[in-house]
C-alpha cells in the first residue's frame, strides 16, 4: 500500500505543476460560466459530461504517457510489470483531474443548485473513465505521440456529431453523452453502467496484454 502511494506521488511529480495549473484553470472557467452564464446555459451536462471527461482523457493521454515516454525502455526494463506502472501513472493523473472535477461540481452547486452532487459524479465518472481508459490503452499500444489523445478525442467528437442517431431504438443505451442529449427514455443509469463496464473491460485487456511483460518496444 505504501509502495503504491509513493509510486503515485512519484508519478505526480513527473507530471509536473502544469497538470494542477491547467486543471485549476478549467475549473475556474466553469465556475465563472456558472456564475455569469445565465439560466439558458445547460451547464451541468456540458461541463461534467462533455468537457471534463474529454479533459481527463487528454490528461491521461498526454501527462500519463507510457510507450511514447522518452524513458520507456528504461522504465520498462526496471518494472516488474508494465500493467502496474501504467495503472499507477494513469490513476495518478485521472485521480487528480477527477479531484478537481468533483471540487468544481461542489463549487458550481453552491452557486446554482440543480443536481445532487452524487448525480453529477455519476454523470462525469463513466464517460471520463471510458475515454481515459481508451487513451491509456492506445498509449500502451503505440509509440506515436499524441495518438492516445487524438483517438479519444475523435471518439468524443464523433459522439457529439452523432447525437441524431438517438432516433434509432437502443442507441440511447450506448450514446456517450446521454444526459447532454436529454436522456429521452430515462435510461441514463443503464448507459453509465455500460460505459463503466466498457472502461473495466479495457483495463482487463491492458492487464491481459501487459501483465509481467517487460520491454516490447515496436
Amino acid at each position: 500500500m505504501g509502495e503504491c502511494k509513493s509510486g503515485i506521488q512519484n508519478e505526480l511529480k513527473i507530471a509536473g505543476t502544469n497538470l494542477f495549473l491547467v486543471s485549476a484553470g478549467i475549473c475556474g472557467a466553469v465556475i465563472v460560466l456558472a456564475a455569469a452564464g445565465g439560466e439558458l446555459l445547460d451547464l451541468y451536462p456540458v461541463s461534467f459530461e462533455v468537457i471534463f471527461p474529454f479533459f481527463a482523457a487528454v490528461s491521461v493521454g498526454e501527462w500519463a504517457r507510457t510507450r511514447a515516454d522518452g524513458n520507456f525502455d528504461l522504465i520498462a526494463a526496471q518494472s516488474r510489470s508494465l500493467f502496474a506502472w501504467a495503472l499507477k501513472r494513469s490513476a495518478a493523473v485521472f485521480g487528480t483531474v477527477s479531484f478537481f472535477a468533483v471540487g468544481c461540481m461542489a463549487a458550481v452547486s453552491l452557486i446554482r443548485y440543480a443536481y445532487p452532487l452524487r448525480e453529477l459524479i455519476f454523470m462525469y465518472f463513466p464517460p471520463a473513465f471510458f475515454l481515459s481508459s481508451l487513451a491509456a490503452w492506445v498509449g500502451l499500444e503505440s509509440v506515436q505521440e499524441h495518438l492516445a489523445a487524438a483517438v479519444s478525442g475523435l471518439v468524443w467528437l464523433a459522439a457529439l456529431l452523432t447525437r441524431s442517431l438517438l432516433r434509432i431504438r437502443g442507441v440511447e443505451y450506448i450514446y456517450l453523452f446521454i444526459c447532454y442529449a436529454g436522456d429521452p427514455n430515462h435510461v441514463w443509469l443503464w448507459n453509465k453502467g455500460i460505459y463503466t463496464a466498457a472502461g473495466i473491460l479495457i483495463w482487463a485487456a491492458i492487464f491481459r496484454r501487459n501483465y509481467q511483460k517487460k520491454v516490447n518496444r515496436i
Binding site: N18, V22, I51, F54, V58, E62, G153, L157, R163
Partner: peptide
C-alpha cells in the same frame, strides 16, 4: 502555451462546431 490547454481550447471550439 501548454499543449493540453491548447487541446482543451481546440476541443471547446470543435465541440461548439459539432453541437
Amino acid at each position: 502555451m501548454d499543449v493540453r490547454l491548447f487541446y482543451m481550447l481546440g476541443a471547446v471550439l470543435f465541440g461548439v462546431n459539432a453541437a
